[in-house]
Structure formats: C-alpha cells, structure tokens
C-alpha cells in the first residue's frame, strides 16, 4: 500500500530515511513498511509534536498506519509485535549477512551499499521493540559504517580494503 504523505517538515527531516525504506518495501513486505513508518511516528513525536506542520504530518502518518493495519488483517507480523520484532530482525540480518558475504568476497557494488544501508536503517527500527542487544548494536554500527565507506570508495574510484 503506497503512502501519500504531505512533505516532511524541516524539523522532522531525520525520519525521511525510514519513510523512504518504507516506500521501497510497499508491495514487497508490508510488515517492513509498517514498522518503518511506526518508527518514524515514534521518532517524530520525540522530535517535534508541537509545530502545526509536524502535527499535520504525524497525523497523516498515523492515519496511514491505522489503515495499513486494517488492510493487512491477516498479517501476523503487523498485528502481533513479538512476531513483528522477529520478522524485522530476521529481515535486517538477512540483508546484513548478504552484504557482509559480498564484501568479504570482494564483490563491491551499489547493491552491497544499499543492503548495508537498509540493514542499518532496520536495526534502528528495532528500537521500536525496546533496547537493542549488543550484537544488534554492533551490527548496526558496522552496517552504517560499511555503507558509507564502500559508497565513498565507489564514488572516488578506490578499491575498498
């Protein structure tokens, strides 16, 4: 289900990445889209729940989440957060391991950058379910660092080490 949202207000620009990941998963994995947007709502409420633009934006996002929950009545990962937690964690780890394997095999490409990047975003989304354990925390830092590093190497025509 594609989301038609108003533009992200300047105060909430940092949640834009999660909304982009949500949009990329619309039609591919409804639970991933749902929890990315849920995380974006949580973060937005922490950052700015006072300015009229932010209130309008969060309200629209919330409308969308409520609708998504109704439209995915048979999706257990959306309706039961413990299942959702496991689903997002497995999905993020799968992406992370794919990228890590490609990296260790010296196969660098935009898809590796994208996989590390998305895994990093989804490790953030896991905060929805509580504090991250040490392994996830480590993977999150590593995935984000690797995405930035390989991206920089590709851009500058350097061979990642």
């Amino acid at each position: 289900m594609a989301a038609k949202l108003p533009p992200v207000p300047p105060t909430l620009r940092s949640v834009q990445h999660y909304l982009k990941t949500a949009t990329e998963h619309d039609g591919r994995d409804a639970a991933v889209s749902y929890y990315c947007r849920l995380y974006a709502v949580q973060k937005s409420l922490q950052i700015d729940k006072k300015s009229p633009d932010a209130v309008k934006f969060i309200t629209t996002l919330m409308d969308h989440l409520e609708q998504a929950k109704k439209q995915n009545a048979d999706n257990e990962a959306i309706h039961t957060e413990t299942i959702g937690h496991a689903h997002i964690e497995q999905y993020a780890l799968k992406l992370f391991l794919y990228a890590d394997n490609e990296d260790r095999s010296s196969r660098f490409g935009k898809n590796v950058v994208k996989s590390f990047y998305t895994a990093g975003m989804l490790f953030d989304v896991l905060e929805t379910f509580g504090e991250l354990n040490d392994d996830i925390e480590k993977n999150r830092k590593y995935a984000k660092w690797k995405a930035t590093y390989i991206h920089k190497c590709i851009k500058e025509g350097l061979q990642p080490q």
Binding site: K49, M62, L65, E81
Partner: peptide, 27 residues
C-alpha cells in the same frame, strides 16, 4: 482567553497523537 484556548487545543492534539499511537500498538 483565545491564547489559552489555542494552547489547550494544541496540547489536546499532542496527547491525542501519543494515545493514538499507544492504541494502535495495543490493538
């Protein structure tokens, strides 16, 4: 006054967003 009314309305809207999120997650 109008200002008090507006700020009460804004505060109610914020509470509403927080409780809407809580309800969504509990359903």
């Amino acid at each position: 006054s109008n200002t008090v009314g507006q700020s009460t309305a804004a505060s109610a809207e914020q509470d509403d967003l927080t409780s809407r999120l809580a309800r969504l997650r509990q359903q």
